[in-house]
Write a protein that binds this DNA or RNA. Structure first.
Lengths: 338, 338
DNA sequence: GTGAAAGCGCTAACAG
DNA sequence: CTGTTAGCGCTTTCAC
């Protein structure tokens, strides 16, 4: 049933061979294959069929070297693909660039700035056309070096700082306001925001948005802010500590999808002698509908697409960040309790 | 606060310039930078520091062209990164190859064989060192063409068919047996397996494993098999249909993580006038612990790592598939009902 | 241990 | 419209 094929290594077909087979000069073959003008349709056909029969594929390295062009390649630098937020971003990006004939290279920083810089330079060495970066750095002036090499930069989710480049971000301020408003309307006053690294632009904007609504109504909310939770384990610890206090919060806001997981894990193990607190997530999760979770949804897939569009379109004038809206999705009644 | 840096494009530094700056010949500079022997430590130092001060970075395209070597690059071809299974696979792969100085290119087939072939050839044109493929094809004899080009192939999750190449797969047969045994022990007889595409090796193995246990005990289970559910929507439809039958199943087995989502979505909307059926997933999900879901866990991250190890180690003799164990994780009591 | 020349496969100028 | 001549930046002979 399964006939196994084996083949011996063979030298690759070169353009010269195609040209000879088609009876034209090297350059003519190059033109025909490259889709350049000034070639008779008939000649082009001859070259094309010669290429097909010979199984010719252009040598990218040679082509790039001779032309000085950049590769049809873009790089994506994120924290870690196991975070569905980044995975969705990657897929959005790929969905846009693939039809444009551009390939995707990915690299993970694990939120380490040094690692990021190393990865970004390695990517640059591949002569990528552009880079989409979810940066772990708070200052991007070093990136100017890459722009000087002709590489287009798009900062995603976290805006560019100290370098003149394009950014695609979420409306975190609006999201923060929406979260706070929602919880206030459901009667909550003791609200705890468990957030990501405090140096993150996204973190600060979300807190600020919530503050705009909560500071006048329930100023004590700031005492319940906890940060540094980029993973679920840290979030879990924060919640366990809060839950064991005299006056635990009646509602938790998860600063990101990992935190959401951590909060829910923690709450599922804590004492049952009080009403289950409400939980509101930032970033939607695939299991949100099943668990009836309310969230302020961001749209990483869309952000990926936007980044991809910028990258294939080439250098843009836009320096004002592109802001992707967030939306509050109320599901079930989890947040109605007090 | 944020001083913006701007730089004008500049020509890249070449090896010749480094050589001149260091007062050595082109070749010596090449040797020093390339870590080749036969260079005085002193000379090497001079070249290295010249390279640093000039900001030299080797031109990969030129280097590859001249040497004829392959790029320090591997490709990963999966269905779609938004599936956490593939995302974990990608991350496992990257975690292994990055320390080895190899970069990762990703591409999505969307389970279309034609698309796959196109992507795989484009990747090959980048002169990747190797390719890890979760293939949407049921015959891989065409892949011999890539091997002939010197590209190493690793088939992941779904074994190579019709070509002599390495495979890394899950113990689906054992997983199927474990799932069936578990449910039998909890008193279930009307068990429905809602599976992926029926042409998938993983699907067939899982069914076969279950059959080994269930056929003798509850032969009618096969009537409740449903397939073609690679996404949650299809799974949802299957469940809604089964639930509206006279004798709905007392337990569902989800053939993959998308199906699991679909089953749970469907069950959350169906009539409540009967005990909630048990649900057992294939593939673990991040929200498993929170929802107290029992699963037969596969280990895509580990599979990614194994694939990466093969790829960086270079051509291996192994043609026998590497089988990664699955493990039944019993959580909560969902499957105890009848 | 180091250097000079040749050429990887292709494309950019120009010339015809 | 087509062909010739140079190189892209690097690595490989093979001398010295």
């Amino acid at each position: 049933m399964s006939e196994t094929t084996t083949v011996t290594p063979q030298r690759r077909v070169t353009l010269a061979q195609v040209a000879e087979h088609a009876g034209v000069s090297l350059k003519t073959a190059s033109r025909a294959l490259g889709g350049e003008p000034h070639v008779t349709d008939q000649t082009r056909q001859r070259v094309l069929s010669a290429a097909t029969t010979l199984g010719y594929r252009r040598n990218t390295a040679a082509s790039l070297l001779a032309s000085g062009r950049v590769a049809e390649l873009v790089g994506l630098v994120t924290g870690d693909l196991t975070n569905p937020f980044y995975a969705a971003l990657a897929q959005g990006l790929e969905d846009v660039i693939d039809p444009a004939g551009v390939q995707l290279n990915v690299a993970s920083t694990r939120e380490d700035p040094e690692q990021e810089w190393r990865l970004v330079r390695d990517l640059a060495d591949l002569r990528v056309r552009g880079l989409a970066i979810v940066s772990a750095m708070d200052d991007h002036s070093r990136y100017a070096e890459l722009q000087a090499r002709g590489i287009e930069l798009i900062f995603v989710d976290r805006p560019a700082q100290g370098v003149s480049a394009c950014s695609v971000i979420s409306d975190n301020l609006g999201g923060g306001r929406a979260a706070a408003t929602h919880l206030l309307q459901h009667g909550h006053r003791r609200i705890s925001f468990v957030g990501d690294y405090s140096w993150l632009h996204t973190y600060r904007q979300r807190v600020d948005g919530m503050g705009q609504v909560l500071d006048p109504e329930a100023p004590q909310w700031r005492e319940l802010i906890r940060d540094g939770a980029h993973d679920s384990a840290t979030a879990r610890r924060h919640v366990l500590e809060l839950e064991s206090s005299d006056q635990p919060p009646t509602a938790y806001v998860a600063g990101n999808n990992r935190v959401l997981l951590g909060i829910l894990e923690a709450l599922s193990t804590t004492r049952e002698d009080r009403p289950m607190p409400a939980v509101l997530g930032f970033d939607d999760v695939e299991w949100g509908p099943v668990m009836q979770l309310s969230v302020v949804a961001t749209d990483p897939y869309r952000m990926g697409r936007l980044a991809g569009e910028q990258l294939v379109a080439g250098p843009s004038a836009t320096e004002e960040p592109l802001v992707v809206p967030t939306s509050l999705i109320a599901r079930g009644s989890g947040e109605r309790q007090s």
